[in-house]
Simulated scan of single mutants.
Amino acid sequence: MSTIIKFFVAPDHSAAAVVDVGPDDFFESLTFGNFDAEEAPIEWESIFTGQTFEDLVAADVSKVVADPGDGDGPVVLAVSQALQDALTAADEQRLVEVSRLWVAERSADGEVFDEGIAVWILSGLAGLVRAIGRKPEGLYCWTA
Score class of each variant (00 low, 15 high):
14 S>I: 03
14 S>H: 07
15 A>N: 01
15 A>S: 04
15 A>V: 02
16 A>I: 00
17 A>C: 08
18 V>M: 01
20 D>A: 08
20 D>W: 04
20 D>R: 05
22 G>Q: 00
23 P>K: 01
23 P>A: 03
24 D>E: 11
24 D>I: 02
26 F>G: 11
26 F>Q: 11
27 F>G: 04
27 F>Q: 03
27 F>M: 05
27 F>N: 02
28 E>Y: 10
29 S>D: 09
31 T>F: 04
31 T>A: 14
31 T>C: 13
32 F>P: 06
32 F>V: 03
32 F>T: 03
32 F>E: 04
33 G>P: 05
33 G>L: 09
33 G>D: 09
34 N>P: 03
35 F>T: 04
35 F>Q: 06
35 F>W: 04
35 F>C: 11
35 F>P: 05
36 D>G: 11
36 D>S: 06
36 D>E: 14
37 A>P: 07
37 A>T: 01
38 E>M: 14
39 E>S: 10
39 E>T: 11
40 A>R: 14
41 P>Y: 05
41 P>A: 04
41 P>S: 10
41 P>M: 05
42 I>P: 08
42 I>F: 04
42 I>D: 09
42 I>M: 10
43 E>T: 11
44 W>H: 07
44 W>R: 06
47 I>W: 13
47 I>P: 03
48 F>Q: 01
50 G>V: 02
50 G>W: 05
51 Q>H: 08
51 Q>W: 04
52 T>W: 04
53 F>P: 02
56 L>A: 02
57 V>C: 10
57 V>E: 13
58 A>V: 12
59 A>W: 00
59 A>L: 11
62 S>M: 11
62 S>I: 11
63 K>M: 15
63 K>D: 15
63 K>H: 12
64 V>N: 09
64 V>H: 08
66 A>D: 00
66 A>Y: 08
66 A>E: 02
67 D>L: 10
68 P>C: 08
69 G>V: 03
69 G>Y: 09
70 D>S: 12
70 D>Y: 14
71 G>L: 13
72 D>L: 15
72 D>S: 15
74 P>A: 05
74 P>K: 01
74 P>D: 00
74 P>W: 01
75 V>A: 00
76 V>E: 03
77 L>M: 09
78 A>S: 12
79 V>F: 06
79 V>M: 02
79 V>T: 05
79 V>E: 07
80 S>E: 01
81 Q>V: 09
82 A>D: 05
83 L>V: 10
83 L>S: 03
83 L>D: 03
84 Q>R: 11
84 Q>K: 11
85 D>Y: 10
85 D>H: 12
86 A>G: 06
87 L>M: 01
87 L>N: 08
88 T>A: 15
89 A>E: 13
89 A>S: 12
89 A>L: 10
90 A>Q: 04
90 A>I: 06
91 D>E: 14
91 D>F: 12
92 E>N: 11
92 E>Y: 15
94 R>I: 09
94 R>H: 04
95 L>Y: 00
96 V>H: 09
96 V>M: 15
96 V>A: 14
96 V>W: 14
97 E>N: 13
98 V>L: 07
98 V>M: 07
100 R>L: 09
100 R>S: 15
101 L>F: 00
102 W>N: 12
103 V>G: 09
103 V>M: 12
104 A>E: 15
105 E>C: 10
